[in-house]
Design a protein around this nucleic acid. Sequence first.
DNA 1: ATGAAAGCGCTAACAA
DNA 2: TTGTTAGCGCTTTCAT
Lengths: 353, 353
Amino acid sequence: MSPLTGAGNDRPATLADVAALSGVATSTVSRALSNPGRVNVLTRERIERAARELNYVPNSQARALTSGRTRAIAVLVSDVTNPFYFGIIRGTQHQLKAAGYTQLLVDTEESDELEDGTLHKLRRSFDGAILAASRLTDRRLTALAKEIPLVAVNRQTRGVPSVFIDTPSAIEQAVGHLVSLGHRRIAYAAGPATSWPNEGRWRALVRAAEHYGVEAVRLGPFAPRQYAGAAAADAVLHSRVTACIAFNDLLAIGMLPRFRERGVRIPNDLSIVGCDDIFGADFCNPPLTTLTAPIEQAGRTAVAMLLSRLDGGPAPMARQAVTLPTHLTVRDSTGPAPRTAPTAPTTNGVPTA
Amino acid sequence: MSPLTGAGNDRPATLADVAALSGVATSTVSRALSNPGRVNVLTRERIERAARELNYVPNSQARALTSGRTRAIAVLVSDVTNPFYFGIIRGTQHQLKAAGYTQLLVDTEESDELEDGTLHKLRRSFDGAILAASRLTDRRLTALAKEIPLVAVNRQTRGVPSVFIDTPSAIEQAVGHLVSLGHRRIAYAAGPATSWPNEGRWRALVRAAEHYGVEAVRLGPFAPRQYAGAAAADAVLHSRVTACIAFNDLLAIGMLPRFRERGVRIPNDLSIVGCDDIFGADFCNPPLTTLTAPIEQAGRTAVAMLLSRLDGGPAPMARQAVTLPTHLTVRDSTGPAPRTAPTAPTTNGVPTA
DNA sequence: ATGAAAGCGCTAACAA
DNA sequence: TTGTTAGCGCTTTCAT
């Protein structure tokens, strides 16, 4: 018989059972189990023994009904398919479990309505939410933050606690790196218009380009998916640049085979920089130079902020906006600029798309 | 004002509010909303209108307390870090949402105790569970399946409904493929001893090797992680084989850079076959020949089985054990056998580890 | 077809 | 420090 199984009982033990066995009132048991300090040491021990004997497990639904707290946190991602979120999920999962919370994972499928709707439908099923990539408007998000304890990742909006992964700063480093390799014209393969970090990355590129006196050209938008890489690669080849910074690694990784098909060698003919440093960025071919984001840490930090807020009242010590540093990781997809920008060969054995 | 926000009310509407507004008893509202058939059409419409007006959202905790059903399904994975589970999670998430269920994601960290413990602690928080890679013993699992509606993935145990990804059959194909390329001695880089599919894969290799009259050698066990690839690669180089089938793609991908370091070319000097076809298997270097598993489908199927069980009583139409076919996907990590097996060079400029 | 009433298991005043 | 007593919001008999 497993120690975790009831002692052959039919129905799981309740507070009342524990109370009966230990000869106290249910309220005392409740206190002993949640506010151990506010109960006599001896009775508490007796109660704990009884609870163990009956293999008592609190019913979290019932607990939630009265206390209003579920000890569950909703984590909303815009696409479970995207490996970027796995870092986030890993971080949140770790931190939540440590704090005894359960994680409700929700995929909002890039839809703001689904995001808003789910948040409301599940409202009483969680104590707080982490929006890993909110597609909501600023207004809506601000309003929501007043109703629901939440922390947004990569989304800075007034009044909304957030964890910001500072990719823009790293973009400046990336541009410096490219400039030092002789690149003078750099493309940005943009992500979806609904993505908040997308604009910041482009602006950072523009700023850095101005600073270094080089050109920046914007391409896209492209879906933040591997399959969008082909279109992005073609666009790059038509833009007469010698280097490209992609909205994210997924897109960058998707571009690689397309360049190979078209006879464009990376990094000899063209340099590529990704963003995030997701799973796979280190072993794709060639390994990707990218802006390494502390993804997992972002998840952990978001949870820490949220929980401290839940425990410590509306606005505790915790800062309301945390910025996580990001750095350039140089691998093999960037190299010295070629004399001329590569173009799509029209007579290369490979037909142009 | 968002249609999803209450009309400026302070506290969310309850059944009683809806009842009051529509002039009926709470029980009638309850029926109208759950058993639409058992209520007068007119009153039902009135109730629905009232509910909409008050922006009523049922409190799932309260509902769970009486009905015993939470409309949540727990999905247990042994390691959220492993991309294999991405596919499972994607599949379950999709199917669960379609059915109006919430997904509770739990990482059991390869620990059977944590698995068992979590299952019990959360017992009243979900209606059923999907064990994506149970580390429990057969006895324990069987016992558990009697208490809790569950479906196991890649784990066949009597009395436990399961979805089995038939990688063993594909291993036979893989061996055939390797034999046709001239390989006569094939290694198996084993996964963890606690992994159920691990043994089946090895047995399939032994069987196929016998059938083709070639040798099979077993190496390991290795952690099913990228970092274990270095050790696995070294073991392969000491085993005098010309081909290796790895427990999973993660391990295979981890082996690749190690071979490169040691001057062993894939597939010229050595052929590698992975299992699962996870994210990354197609773009690593070289792209991996692997046994493509319908991972996402496995997740979807598991959910379908579980839900049909929950709705349709203890043992409905649904088969209790489903096998999903797997096939060999040949990419660039397998090729003709070299004349002699590669070994670890001791004087190659690269020091041996 | 509808209503009244009794809980589900727990927490949180309030008393003692 | 402990017990008594109301509920939390909902479902579900049992009546009507």
